[in-house]
């Protein structure tokens, strides 16, 4: 059944349609929540709150935008709200774009993408690096680069202008690359 039809049926109280909608998106929502929170318990909590918002707001959902986009927006906002309660010093200060790039600190990496599922050491390195990045930057990187939304779509979701998204994305990419470079360049892994 198409998403539009599922939403229309769920809006009229069709329980099976609601269950199908939840099943259709629970993996995406949980995975994205984890990618932001890097904590399974917080990710599950975010998933639950996100679907609670969906159930409450389904009646007003017009279908002008995709439900998945709306869910990504809710997850992003929920995670940002949780992160603002955290202490600022838990995150590394983001330097200006100029200082983030050191053309002398370039090396081959000891590992290539792929087979991440079996590599717990790499997962720890990835978790540690992204956890240092301020959530406002982390969410932009995840929406744009990992989930594949356009710069414009990302801006709409987090209510930022295109230049602001681009600036944060630039810094997030360079910051994460620098953090991973410390652990993954040859001789360090």
């Amino acid at each position: 059944m198409e998403e539009k039809e599922l939403i229309e049926k769920a809006q009229t109280g069709d329980r099976r349609a609601l269950s199908d909608l939840i099943k259709k998106y629970e993996q995406t929502v949980y995975n994205f929540s984890f990618k932001i929170c890097r904590n399974k318990e917080k990710a599950e909590n975010t998933m639950q709150e996100t679907f609670l918002s969906m159930v409450k707001s389904l009646g007003q959902f017009s279908g002008n935008s995709k439900l998945s986009t709306w869910l990504y927006t809710v997850v992003s906002n929920h995670c940002l709200m949780m992160a603002r309660a955290q202490k600022k010093h838990e995150f590394a200060p983001i330097e200006d774009e100029e200082s983030l790039i050191d053309e002398k600190d370039v090396a081959d990496w000891s590992i290539s993408p792929g087979k991440i599922a079996e590599n717990n050491e790499l997962k720890e390195i990835l978790d540690s690096a992204i956890s240092k990045l301020e959530p406002e930057y982390r969410i932009i990187f995840l929406l744009r680069d990992v989930e594949g939304f356009s710069t414009e779509e990302t801006g709409e979701m987090v209510k930022l202008s295109v230049p602001a998204v681009k600036s944060r994305l630039h810094r997030a990419r360079a910051f994460l690359r620098n953090e991973l470079n410390k652990s993954l360049k040859y001789g360090n892994a």
Partner: peptide
């Protein structure tokens, strides 16, 4: 290294 950074986070799913 930038390309790999993006791919690492894309491929790390739960």
């Amino acid at each position: 290294s930038i390309d790999s950074t993006i791919k690492f986070y894309k491929e790390y799913n739960i």
